[in-house]
Design a protein around this nucleic acid. Structure first.
Lengths: 234, 234
DNA sequence: TCAGGGTTGATTATCGATAACCATTGAAGC
DNA sequence: GCTTCAATGGTTATCGATAATCAACCCTGA
């Protein structure tokens, strides 16, 4: 094999990941190790490693001696992810505020791109910049485990998967929710920024529910606690 | 090979994990695939899978073509973990409260064992029941992703690793902190329980700092925000 | 003495083949 | 017809060997 800078397993992982995201491999699709190995002109070994990695990303499921399948992401799981994300980002804002006080140049730049993408109704761009925005705040918190936990939610993956199905009809309004967050961080007010981020995640969750599980499962609300920030900001 | 109910890779993973935890394999130890394979009478393949799993647990580090090493857990990482744990458990309490209201029999049972272990100064038991306690609350939140994020912190592992070095000198006092948490949950007051859990994590973090990095790194505080619950409970 | 570059030993990454395993099927017994 | 169980086909789990890669060492020439 020629000079390979990335391992075979990594290459296979990337391709399969992309296919799952763009819907080429819909949920339920069976992933046969030898079949994939044949396609990528490799042996079974790197395929197994790639599948294991996808398993960690929760993109596939596997059963011993039974095989590996593409995993669907349920509306319920999506809602759960929003709830956890809200809590993690609230914490991130509180930790990041001292560092970002008077130093939000990068954040504002991302915000501009986000707003521009929203105005042009550019979904792809919106998702990208939105992820950059939240990621930047989390990284600014300077807590490696927090960053890793946030990444492990695989939120970008989830969103990109579902984006190929249905997307938010009103991107500009959604993008505008990010403005006061930057303002609060610029002033070093982490508590307010945190509450705004939490509310933002919750709002996204509710919009998600409206668009997908229209009125479904009202018996088991995931998190309908009162948005505390409403009172603070009024 | 005889009738194996668990895979070789899983068996190897468990043994190595235990050795890392109990200090048989101290941080920095190099893990040679073929050497381990020889010891476990297997080929390199299941060893590789085991090492990959340990890598996901952040117990080892590996570099391409360079090998795998046992990873140390720094005091800083330990503090980071406490901060994230506090946020996740605060959320867990809020979500779990409706479910646990008037239904904390299991929690109280665990609490009794926890208090008993603390009184007997039984470290092993304390760690076990303490983990059960927090785990029970997280599971009661009925949010799979939250549970997984919490598990991914690998808190039990971290504590068990460091437990073999130095442990909390006053277990009963620490155990007693759990009592008001159960009380709040029994009344369905998730907000209070959440704040108590957050404070509890923070207190653990500060005790940790006192015992380990005595007065070190005062320049970069991880999270010294005021414990909000103090005001609420007064 | 020292810098550069090829060589070697050690180790991981990958391979192709085999063993272990599960679900299904179909025949035999009831 | 229904149940039981052994044979079968398809797939994963594991194997032992080879290729790829890296770091350290040893030359060589200045």
């Amino acid at each position: 094999m020629s000079n390979l800078r990335v391992s075979n397993s990594h290459r296979i992982r990337s391709v399969l990941e992309q296919r799952i995201i763009d819907g080429t491999l819909p949920p339920g699709t069976r992933l046969l190790e030898l079949e994939i190995a044949k396609e990528f002109q490799t042996s079974q070994t790197p395929v197994r490693e790639a599948l294991e990695a996808l398993h960690m990303l929760r993109l596939v499921e596997s059963e011993r001696y039974r095989g590996t399948y593409v995993r669907g992401i349920s509306d319920r799981e999506m809602e759960e992810a929003y709830v956890v994300r809200g809590a993690l980002e609230q914490l991130a804002a509180e930790l990041a505020a001292p560092r970002l006080k008077g130093n939000v140049r990068e954040l504002r730049a991302i915000l501009q791109e986000l707003l521009a993408a929203a105005d042009m109704n550019d979904n792809q761009g919106y998702v990208q910049h939105n992820n950059d925005f939240h990621s930047a705040i989390v990284r600014a918190a300077d807590n490696h485990l927090l960053t890793e936990s946030w990444n492990n939610l695989g939120f970008d993956l989830r969103v990109r998967i579902h984006l190929n199905q249905r997307h938010d009809p009103n991107l500009p309004a959604r993008a505008a929710e990010h403005i006061p967050i930057v303002d609060a961080l610029e002033q070093g007010d982490g508590v307010t920024a945190g509450l705004l981020l939490k509310d933002h995640a919750n709002a996204c969750r509710l919009r998600w529910r409206q668009r997908h599980s229209l009125g479904k499962e009202p018996a088991a609300p995931v998190d309908d606690s009162t948005p505390v920030s409403a009172a603070i900001l009024s």
